[in-house]
């Protein structure tokens, strides 16, 4: 199945739900409204997109939004196996809340926890929303957002003055 056919297939399945369908390098990006994400995900799953490969968030502080993308593909339908679809929603940066897709794709469970700890995105209806990799104190700082700056340390930083 080539990319144009995939775009047509998705457009047919999602109809007006898809605000924007773009062919990117290596995947097809579909943007939907945050309120429609569960419906859109269910329709994609019915098409045969049965697992989530990656849940990504990207922070755009200038536009005050966070884009969450689910890269999904298919194990059980051969013609969709080589296709990756990125189901995306834009959330406000101040209050990023969206419906969890664990009910649709169980494979997103751990990765939604990751997006929660690194970006502070709250997934409503997630069965077990708590930090996965980070300790809670660090997760509070939302370290993958752009305003968390990684500072270069000098090699003597933290060493008592008398040793320097």
């Amino acid at each position: 199945m080539n990319l144009e056919e995939v775009v047509e297939l998705i457009r047919g399945a999602l109809g007006d739900l898809a605000k924007e369908i773009t062919v990117r390098k290596g995947y097809v990006e579909v943007v939907v409204n945050p309120g429609d994400v569960v419906t859109a995900a269910t329709k994609l799953k019915e098409l045969g997109f049965d697992h989530v490969k990656s849940v990504t968030a990207v922070d755009y502080p200038k536009e005050s939004r966070i884009r969450v993308t689910y890269h999904v593909s298919s194990y059980l339908r051969d013609d969709l196996a080589r296709v990756i679809v990125g189901l995306s929603v834009d959330l406000s940066r101040e209050n990023p809340v969206m419906d969890s897709l664990v009910g649709v794709w169980r494979s997103s469970e751990f990765q939604e926890r990751e997006v929660y700890e690194f970006f502070g995105v709250v997934f409503k209806g997630h069965p077990d929303l708590r930090p996965l990799l980070l300790i809670p104190e660090l997760a509070e700082k939302r370290v993958l957002r752009k305003d968390f700056i990684v500072r270069e340390e000098s090699i003597y930083e933290g060493v008592p003055h008398r040793y320097q």
Partner: peptide, 9 residues
């Protein structure tokens, strides 16, 4: 199982 493997990704 086959389906569980696909479900868990």
């Amino acid at each position: 199982s086959r389906n569980l493997a696909a479900d868990l990704g």
